[in-house]
């Protein structure tokens, strides 16, 4: 009786000890880095396109944790990622200033679009001035979905309200729905409520549950969305894979990496525009 029981326990242990590490074999292989990035880069399919190309060239596996920009920077701060790849320049500069990151490299940009229902209750469809459009939404109390998650998109949205002289924390009413979730969830919510929402173009293009939503405002310079990449400071977190992480960054800003980014298209539309060489980007 005891031997049978011992067999069962041994089997359970074996399942645990061999099963789990078998799934994690490339942990031991070590040619891998963890990149904390944003939902927009993952949900738009950019990583799915460029990472296999990068791996083929260097043999480095890039494991992407898709979070909001704020959370991704926190992940880097805690030392749980080797590289952060995000889009909120002031927050990134703050990250460097704290010593959490080594140096920020601009990589590419895409742009935000203001999405809204075809019925256009704020009467802003087709206009070019994003600030005026937001003012109209507020004035009419048209439903608006905010990410509310400290992501790059959320921070961009807050900056735009501010540019229009609207203190959104003060002036938001029931029309302003702060959902505290990712881009996809925000679009799903907007689609369900026929609300306006600020989205990055990449996520919007690849988003499938549009319902009655369409682009209301696009093309304003202030909708410009810059991505930067930063190596987490190895002096703070000695386990950071400095060489591999830097190799990834170097490739992203190399002519080859920049060309690969430009090549990523959905339905013939280019989603991200490389600009590593543009000063001040």
């Amino acid at each position: 009786m005891f031997t049978r029981r011992a067999c069962i326990v041994a089997f359970l242990f074996a399942a645990l000890l061999f099963g789990a590490p078998a799934m994690a074999q490339d942990n031991a292989g070590n040619k891998s880095i963890v990149v904390a990035s944003t939902t927009s880069t993952q949900d738009s399919g950019l990583f799915g396109y460029i990472l296999p190309i990068f791996k083929a060239k260097t043999g480095i596996d890039v494991k992407v944790i898709a979070q909001g920009t704020g959370q991704a920077l926190d992940t880097g701060r805690r030392g749980d990622a080797d590289v952060v790849f995000v889009h909120a320049k002031p927050a990134e500069e703050q990250f460097i200033a704290e010593g959490a990151g080594v140096r920020r490299y601009p990589v590419m940009y895409n742009d935000f679009v203001l999405i809204g229902p075809k019925s256009d209750p704020a009467g802003i469809a087709g206009t070019k001035d994003i600030v005026a459009a937001l003012e109209a939404i507020q004035a009419k109390g048209a439903p608006f979905v905010s990410r509310g998650d400290r992501s790059g998109t959320h921070q961009a949205e807050l900056a735009l309200w501010k540019a229009g002289g609207i203190d959104i924390a003060e002036e938001k009413g029931p029309w302003y729905r702060d959902i505290g979730q990712g881009m996809g969830a925000a679009l799903n919510t907007a689609s369900a409520m026929n609300a306006y929402v600020l989205s990055d173009r990449g996520t919007w293009i690849s988003f499938k549950n549009r319902g009655d939503l369409t682009i209301a405002v696009e093309g304003d310079n202030r909708l410009f969305n810059q991505y930067g990449v930063i190596l987490v400071n190895p002096q703070k977190h000695p386990h950071v894979k400095q060489a591999l992480g830097q190799a990834f960054i170097d490739w992203l800003i190399s002519p080859d990496g920049q060309k690969t980014i430009a090549n990523y298209k959905i339905d013939g539309q280019q989603l991200f525009f490389p600009n590593a060489t543009v000063p001040g980007a």
Binding site: D43, Q181, G184, L187, N188, F207, K208, N209, R210
Partner: peptide, 9 residues
């Protein structure tokens, strides 16, 4: 969860 957030319900 990911496919939901991508809107591919």
């Amino acid at each position: 969860a990911l496919e939901t957030s991508k809107g591919d319900l």
